[in-house]
């Protein structure tokens, strides 16, 4: 596209685009900004209409750490999400390779089975999964949080789409040169599917980091609680400490935001390859 032509011909339009984007961005950010402001309010004032605190209480942030083991919840959340992400990406990539690169009997049927399970409501598997956890003695443990989440049909689906876009000529050439499937996987397909891996990394991390229900039913010990569970403490029958909920929420945004900012360029480049194949 000829940038010059566009630049001269559409100045007005560009300005309009900026205005619309800015408006939407403000709309998106306002609640977030409000959340940040509320996190600095004294408790009485959280209930009042002024968006800016009349008295700034940075102590809310300290209070979050002193009322509950917030640091520990923080570490737990990141730890669990990191393991889940690592395992999901690894196992999904391996399976995606089997579905996209290897030929075997029953491959397509198996893949369709994967797709079908995407349609099943999560609550369906909740109860049986809980029973499985009881059997495996994984209640109230990190493993119980990590293991069931680490084998994703969605991830396999997504990475398969990416791997299909890698030209088969490349791995055929590698095989000619004597590479094993293992070698092709690591040295040819995986590097080229990197954008997909990054996309899956972000989706998995963000999704698991915020997960609420599974840890709620599974975790018992205080030292294994994750952030979404830990934050419930500030909202009890004996008084909702909204200012502390807000402070805790602001802090909890940091890890996924950081990850997103670091990886987002690759993410966009990444999806485009998979999406086309649909």
């Amino acid at each position: 596209m000829n940038d010059e032509r566009r630049g001269t011909g559409n100045k007005g339009l560009n300005a309009a685009v900026y205005v619309v984007l800015a408006l939407v961005a403000v709309g998106t950010m306002l609640p977030f900004v409000w959340m940040v402001l509320a996190s600095f309010k004294p408790l009485q004032e959280v209930e009042q209409a002024n968006p800016v605190p009349s008295r700034w209480v940075p102590g809310n942030y300290r209070e979050v750490f002193s009322q509950v083991a917030f640091a520990r919840y923080y570490v737990n959340s990141v730890f669990v999400a990191a393991w889940v992400t690592f395992l999901t990406v690894l196992t999904s990539a391996l399976a995606a390779f089997a579905f996209s690169r290897l030929t075997w009997r029953g491959r397509d049927a198996t893949f369709q089975l994967y797709l079908a399970t995407l349609m099943i409501p999560g609550v369906v598997t909740m109860i049986p999964n809980y029973t499985v956890m009881v059997q495996l003695r994984l209640l109230d443990s990190y493993q119980g949080l990590i293991v069931p989440a680490a084998f994703s049909a969605f991830g396999t689906f997504l990475l398969r789409q990416f791997m299909l876009t890698v030209p088969p000529a490349l791995d055929e050439a590698a095989t000619m040169d004597g590479a094993t499937p293992w070698g092709v996987f690591w040295d040819v397909v995986m590097p080229l599917a990197r954008p997909g891996l990054i996309a899956l990394t972000i989706f998995t991390f963000v999704g698991n980091y915020g997960s609420f229900f599974w840890p709620l039913v599974l975790i018992k010990s205080e030292n294994l609680r994750t952030l979404p569970i830990g934050m419930m403490y500030f909202d009890s029958l004996y008084g909702r400490q909204t200012n502390l909920i807000m402070a805790a929420s602001v802090m909890s945004v940091v890890p996924p935001a950081l990850l997103f900012v670091l990886l987002q360029k690759h993410l966009v480049r990444g999806i485009q390859m998979g999406a086309v194949k649909g």
Partner: peptide, 14 residues
């Protein structure tokens, strides 16, 4: 690696 987990934690429960 994926399939076993899939069977135990998704297909089985279903």
């Amino acid at each position: 690696p994926n399939f076993l987990g899939f069977v135990v934690f998704t297909a089985g429960p279903v």
